[in-house]
Amino acid sequence: MNPAAQARNKRRTVWLLSLLVLGMFGFGFALMPLYDLLCQVTGIQSVSLRSAGEAVAEPLSIREDSRLITIKFDTSVHPNLPWDFQPLERHLQVHPGKLYQVNFAARNRSSASVTGQAIPSVAPWQATAFLNKLECFCFNRQTLAGGASVEMPLRFMISPDLPPEIRSLTLSYSLMKPETPAPELAPELAPESAPESARHEKG
């Protein structure tokens, strides 16, 4: 091959490959609409989309079932925590597959700021996997300034796969003062890094 022809070939290959690189970079962004399209065309739906679709967008789709389940809420507060803590509703009748919200009221009786952590548990335990919490104050530690009170939401859905023999269940929360401090940077670093670690905490 003469040098001129070889140089021309090289240039052409370089251009083609560069286009491919750009194309794939664009393809990464195109994947967003493409995934949606693929799911619509093929009817593939992820489990979360399916349940979200039923609970929020189409409350009466087939997957929601007509069973009525009784769910009771129970709270207890560990003596090391100077808080009052109650559900605003003691029990609810719910349909599996539908989204519900219950608020819990908490009040700090002391005058200092206090952090608490709620630990959930479900009875009977066989129902645990079927109670899906979409939002819960128990996902994070909660800090209340002295004398402050808040209402904290719990959003949940009972899965339609709940075994038929379970007709009622109890969700109880024990609220306590966490024994270990929240994982944080060394104290001497704290002032500068406060915004970062605060963001970090929320996760």
Binding site: L17, V21, M24, F25, G28, F29
Partner: peptide, 14 residues
Amino acid sequence: LILVVPVLAGGVTM
């Protein structure tokens, strides 16, 4: 590499 690295680059850019 040419096919997949740009997609990762897109992901971390997002």
